[in-house]
Amino acid sequence: MSSSQATQLPEQSQLDAKALPPALRRRPSLLREMWKQRAAYLFLLPKLILFTAFVLIPVIWAFVLAFQEYGVFGSEWVGFKNFTSVADSEAFRTALWNTLKYTVVTVPLQVILALVLATLIHPLGRRAQSFFRGAFYLPTVTSMVIIAMVWRWVYNYRYGLFNYMLGFLGIPAQDWLNQSNTALWALIIMSVLIPPGVGIIMYLAAMDAIPDQLYEAAKIDGASGLQRWRKITVPLLKPTTLYLTMLSLIGSFQVFTQILLMTGGGPGHATETLVTLIYKTAFRDLEFGLASAQAIVLFVITLIFGIAQYWLMYRKAEE
């Protein structure tokens, strides 16, 4: 890309020199360059205006709000008070702990499940492949609101499917979503049983890209199917694994919809997560400053986990 542009640039500047208005001809080169590329700015402008207004300013504002006590008639600077409130808050600690538990269990299981299912699907014929891809991806395009409604029924105490199935194993019926010791686990089980459609599709694409010769060479050397999978497939899928873990991590730190619809964060704070707490702090308690501080803590935690995970996987790769 850069080489072709290098050859074309002089030509282009000669063409455009005549188009410059006289006032700009002797201006500093940056302005001249900008004028020459005015079409680029015009292409960018509509998006840039919206982006600045509804993304950039709100992000900056969030960091300002976190240090303020917000009031309709003006805000007051309060320093780090919101952050110390976050640190002292029992509810926040519970929400953080619940979110961590949820993440630590669901993220690895979702990624491993995607890898195993993709491994099983990959050797199948084209039609079988596309059938299973569709079957596993379809729930992903369905609104979480709908999925959550069905799972409320699955966990229903009186006539739900879950108790019915467990009945065969002789496990007594439980009111899964309304007991503080089972509610979070019920939500975790649900997340694991929703198929990892995105992961399966990405793994399948990555597996297609692994050259056949590698497997053939390993076969000649007498490697078994499982050995080939462990020594060739899994290591070569590492970038996909890293990307999927990152996606899943971000998603699980932000889990919200199913919790609001199925337990509302309760009973008590038993299934409160960071985002349900932020939602309630902001829009039920109208504590805007505190909610912004909570959101920033969420951001920082996500960032730390992301970096730690990246570092761990790549350091291990170098060993």
Binding site: F54, A62, F288, S292, A295, L298, T302
Partner: peptide, 13 residues
Amino acid sequence: IPGQITLVPLFIM
């Protein structure tokens, strides 16, 4: 950046 960060400022806006 997680979308939740802009929730409150967007609401005020």
